[in-house]
């Protein structure tokens, strides 16, 4: 059922794009290519650079270095902008305008907008059309922002933390709407703090950490990496031996302690104990999504320092 747009090139590209704000490096030489019809979730902690990435792709800020292209073109071009719709993380709409007035205004910006009724229905705003924006609840306001993003029937949607502050049910509805858009062949970029959400919606997850991409893969790949366990122990087993054990992703020494990142802890521990019964100070912890990737980047740094 899913329609994949038949277009050449990429919907959006960053080519070693950096963004500095004074001393702060918000984004550090990021390369990112988004295919037509792909749903990409940008995952990362506060300050990781998610909003910066979205703003660059929307042409709201210019990169300090590198290039940004939307549909092979400069993102600030009006012609390109008629193909995008966006929902920003912070957007205070005028409190004294009614929902339909906002939607109609936004529809007038686009050459081939959706019908008003369709927008209202898709965004779940039926019954709220005549309300003033300022008199809506936070979640309802969020839905109005979603409605504006949809109203021009754009090919590419940017959703910056679209589900923050939504209750569980609204969030599920929202996910269902996004899936409908995906089926229509829209290209979607959304940012989120939650692996669960990224997994539920996207084909591809890009994990940002301090302005760099630290992981990029399918939800399955990212999830299994995130589900990995961290094993720490003091043992005679060497790093190269540990790496040879099935299921071990990474192994390195943290001073006297051997640290291992593995898909599952039990078989690895069994194997370690078999090789070194004298093993001590065994510790097993879960490595959450961020931990898993911070570890990847952190270990590199440790090696660099050594």
């Amino acid at each position: 059922m899913r329609r994949i747009p038949n277009e050449r090139g990429f919907a959006a590209e960053l080519e070693s794009a950096s963004k500095r704000y004074g001393d702060v490096v918000a984004l550090d030489a990021v390369d990112l290519q988004l295919r037509h019809g792909q749903t990409t979730a940008i995952l990362g902690a506060n300050g990781a650079g998610k909003t910066t990435t979205v703003k660059l792709l929307l042409g709201l800020i210019r990169p300090s270095s590198g290039t940004v292209r939307l549909y092979g073109d400069d993102p600030t071009r009006p012609r390109v902008r008629t193909r995008t719709g966006s929902m920003m993380q912070i957007s205070s709409l005028p409190a004294t305008l009614r929902v339909v007035e906002l939607i109609d205004l936004w529809r007038s910006y686009y050459p081939a907008p959706l019908d008003r009724g369709e927008v209202v229905e898709l965004a779940g705003l039926s019954g709220l059309e005549r309300r003033l924006y300022g008199k809506l609840s936070g979640g309802q306001q969020q839905r109005v922002c979603f409605a504006l993003a949809l109203s021009g029937d754009p090919d590419l949607l940017f959703l910056d933390e679209p589900t923050v502050g939504l209750d569980v049910e609204t969030r599920r509805n929202f996910w269902a709407q996004i899936r409908r858009l995906v089926e229509q062949g829209k290209t979607i970029v959304l940012t989120t703090h939650y692996l669960e959400e990224a997994d539920a919606l996207s084909d591809r997850i890009v994990v940002l950490h301090e302005g760099s991409i630290c992981a990029d893969g399918t939800p399955h790949q990212i999830k299994s990496a995130a589900a990995s366990r961290r094993i720490r122990c003091v043992t005679r087993v060497r790093v190269d031996e540990a790496l040879a054990i099935a299921g071990v992703r990474q192994a390195y020494h943290d001073k006297a302690v051997l640290e291992i990142l593995a898909a599952e802890a039990e078989p690895v521990v069994r194997e370690l104990l078999a090789r070194d019964p004298g093993l001590s100070q065994l510790e097993i912890t879960g490595a959450g999504i961020e931990d898993a990737f911070l570890d990847l980047t952190g270990s590199q740094r440790r090696e660099d320092a050594a």
């Binding site: 709201l60 902008r81 719709g85 966006s86 912070i90 205070s92 936004w106 504006l148 021009g152």
Partner: peptide, 10 residues
């Protein structure tokens, strides 16, 4: 934020 949203629109 309203203006930012408008600037991102066509």
């Amino acid at each position: 934020g309203w203006m930012l949203l408008k600037r991102a629109s066509p």
